[in-house]
Design a protein around this nucleic acid. Structure first.
Length: 437
RNA sequence: GGAGGGGUGGCAGAGUGGACGAUUGCGCCAGUCUUGAAAACUGGAGGCCGGUCACCCCGGUCCAGGGGUUCGAAUCCCCUCCCCUCCGCCA
């Protein structure tokens, strides 16, 4: 949600910023301005009537008492009759105002966040780290791609069982089995431990949430086609624990001294992924259910960019320690989600596809989510008490388990089909080497 | 799922139609006292909207949330959410 005061102060700047996103938000934007203005006309009128009512209430109470003593209730009756009229006018105004405010809230909810001025017009690669090759297949000096097997071949149906997954639940569902389960648990435990050491409290959140949480985080009204709903219970399955983590402090006023608040959520994620499946999305790459470790931070607004860089550096550290070559992409302004002002993706090199594919992503949502969720910040110890203000929230993927497993299998593969796994995972229960399928 | 009982300020807890944004206690902040602290005493302190996006001040609003009755609602009625107790069920 955007700050109405800021929009009023400089509508043209906001309009221009929104236009960079390329969507058709102009109508909603103009509607917001118009409804806001109407609201500001009606409100003082209603308040004047209310003040009149408040003043009269005391008089009526006195008159009633006097009437009781004297037996003459004519004065009281007259006052009540007068106020009956005022009350009716107030009620009419109130109804109109409620209508305007409902419309305003609806239009306002449709507006996405203002993009960061540095968010580029097109995806732009900021850096590339690691060699796009596979050490274990080093037999050929040119590193010819033909030899690289993809993760499904490497894992085998007894470890990534798509067929039975589909039989049970439909396409894009998988059974993860055997060694790979321990690999997942090791990845998760490794990541959560690392994040704990960096000040992120581990959290296992609910994954079924109310509609409010999805509106609050900006997933509604924007990505409804991606969200599983349970209409019988008015609940939704989250596509990311970001929803639950952001909502942890909904409606709260936080203390500056308590910031930053940093979390690491571990949860399954559910996405409908409506539409045709592409060949490059086969296997675990795009499934309806996957597990993920997600970072989430609440920081003062002025620290948001620094925190964004921090989350990105953690993502890079994780990829580096796992030995996965990657590139960092500054996501195009017209490709940001509704809540993000800026987004960086880390794309891993996938040997089987000979291209970089998204593995992790980190977004600076500035005060957009905080404003929607009603999470604010105050400083009780400040010299001059200032009003609570929205703070900044940021999120970033630590480990998207399925895709990380893909990258690990493909990069660890050797000519004989066995797979070397990163050393750092061994203490957490992962095998050093997976047998060939 | 069934039957009851509840939700009031940071916490505890009064208030059941008329000056209640709300008695009181604890906690918190400041001051007086003190070498310092404690105690005691005095004072202060919420959010939101608007007047003017500052301060002060003023008006409006907020007693879980929403709607209704009334000249007037913390108080009466309806709906929703949450918590507690008992029963049932269950990883």
């Amino acid at each position: 949600m955007l700050d109405l005061k800021a929009l009023r102060r400089d509508p043209d700047a906001a309009r221009a910023a929104l236009a960079r996103r390329g969507g058709t938000d102009a109508e909603a934007f103009d509607a917001v301005l118009a409804l806001d203005e109407r609201r500001r006309e009606l409100l003082p009128q209603l308040e004047t009537l209310r003040a009149e009512q408040n003043a009269a209430n005391g008089e009526i109470a006195k008159a009633k008492k006097a009437a009781k003593a004297s037996g003459d209730s004519s004065a009281a009756d007259a006052a009540v009759a007068t106020m009956r009229d005022v009350s009716a006018r107030a009620k009419a105004l109130q109804e109109e105002l409620a209508e305007v405010e409902a419309g305003l809230a609806e239009q306002q909810a449709r507006l996405p966040n203002l993009p960061h001025p540095d968010a580029p017009p097109k995806d732009s690669v900021l850096k590339t780290v690691g060699e796009p090759r596979i050490d274990g297949l080093g037999a050929r000096p040119d590193g010819a791609p033909a030899e690289a097997r993809d993760h499904l071949e490497l894992a085998g149906a007894h470890r990534v069982d798509m067929e039975r997954g589909a039989r049970l639940s439909g396409s894009r569902f998988a059974y993860l089995r055997g060694d790979l389960v321990f690999l997942e648990l090791a990845l998760v435990q490794w990541a959560l431990s690392k994040l704990r050491d960096k000040g992120h409290e581990a959290v296992i959140p609910p994954v079924l949430v109310r509609e409010d949480a999805l509106y609050g985080t900006g997933f509604l009204p924007d990505t409804e086609q991606q969200i599983y709903a349970l209409p019988g219970d008015d609940l939704y399955l989250v596509g990311t624990s970001e929803v639950a983590l952001a909502s942890m402090h909904a409606g709260e006023i936080l203390e500056v001294a308590d910031l930053p608040l940093r979390y690491a959520g571990f949860s399954p994620c559910f996405r409908r992924e409506a539409g045709a499946a592409g060949a490059s999305d086969r296997g675990l790459f795009r499934v309806h259910q996957f597990d993920k470790v997600e970072m989430f931070s609440f920081v003062p607004p002025e620290d948001a960019e620094e925190e964004h860089a921090r989350l990105l550096s953690i993502e890079e550290e994780i990829l580096t320690e796992l030995g996965i070559p990657y590139q960092v992409v500054d996501i195009a302004v017209d490709d940001l989600g509704a809540s993000a002002a800026r987004k960086f993706d880390c794309e891993a090199w996938l040997p089987s596809q000979q291209q970089y594919r998204e593995l992790t992503s980190t977004s600076n949502t500035t005060d957009f989510q905080a404003r929607r969720l009603g999470t604010r910040l105050k400083d009780s110890r400040a010299e001059s008490a200032r009003k609570p203000e929205p703070l900044a929230t940021l999120n970033g993927t630590a480990i998207a388990v399925g895709r990380t497993i893909i990258a690990l299998l493909e990069h660890g593969q050797r000519a004989d089909g066995t797979i070397v796994l990163p050393e750092c995972l061994a203490p957490f229960g992962a095998p050093r080497v997976l047998p060939a399928a």
